[in-house]
Amino acid sequence: MADFFDINLLKAILRMATPLIFAAMGGLICERSGVMNIGLEGMMLTGAFVAVLGTYYLHNPWWGLLCALISGALVGLIHAFWSIGLRSDQIVTGTAINLLAAGITIFLCQRLWQQSGRSPQVETLPNVTSGVNVLVPIAFLLVPVVWYFLRTTKPGLRLMASGESPQAAESVGIAVDKLRYVAVMTSGMFAAAGGAYLSIGSLSLFTRDMTAGRGFIALAAVIFGNWMPIGTLGACLLFAGSQALQVQAQIKGIGISTDLLLALPYLLTLIALAGFVRNSRPPAGLGQHPTTH
């Protein structure tokens, strides 16, 4: 049991938390601005695919990452245009994005590489130390940046005001819709970075549906973290920890019940939502618009 908690377990937790942190920070900004984003999953998947696509054609994973960020912003723009511009239901749009991303990535994979559901191998982003990709520290650095942005900067505070009460924000001259466009596109970029970490960070190729629900777990982390950056980071670490422990237990052949560990993120989120966690409160203006058409 002594060697159960070793450095590899720590690294595994960091690795598994990274894509969640990226996506969750995106989801946090989006929800804080007042727009629900269940399309995070699709945005991650798009990022994962485009990162490989860019790396494949531009022969450089950094360019691949840039392409992924742009693609994430574009998918975010779709979500923003429909849910803010057209005032469509945000859940409906998010669902459409998830379906589209799942379909288009496989469709293009087959078209470009004649392989159903997997890309060829590409170069990956460098590691900072063995088993820790450069995107891992970046993800962790993103958390204080988001925290600082929301807590102290003018646009950050305005963004939170838009999420709490869009009507009031609009009445004091904040361009709520414009801010939300930027927020949703940023959330797409962050989610895409999380996807890129999966495809050109920890692996070196794209496989169909490789995000495997991480976008939804990230959303759960935002809720479990009570829409706060630090809390969300904690939730990401908790969820990643339960996954990593499960893997570690399998490697070391320890017969603890790993099934419960796998179910933990979902159970905890349900418990949090059920009101057993004190002060779980979403932005008050979530899903509301400053003016109705």
Partner: peptide, 22 residues
């Protein structure tokens, strides 16, 4: 044509609906 086009079509149907309702 990849049969995943169906997923794309489903997504497009939803978006088209949302836009028309808007």
């Amino acid at each position: 044509t990849s049969k995943e086009l169906v997923l794309v079509l489903q997504g497009l149907v939803i978006l088209a609906f949302a836009a028309l309702a808007a």
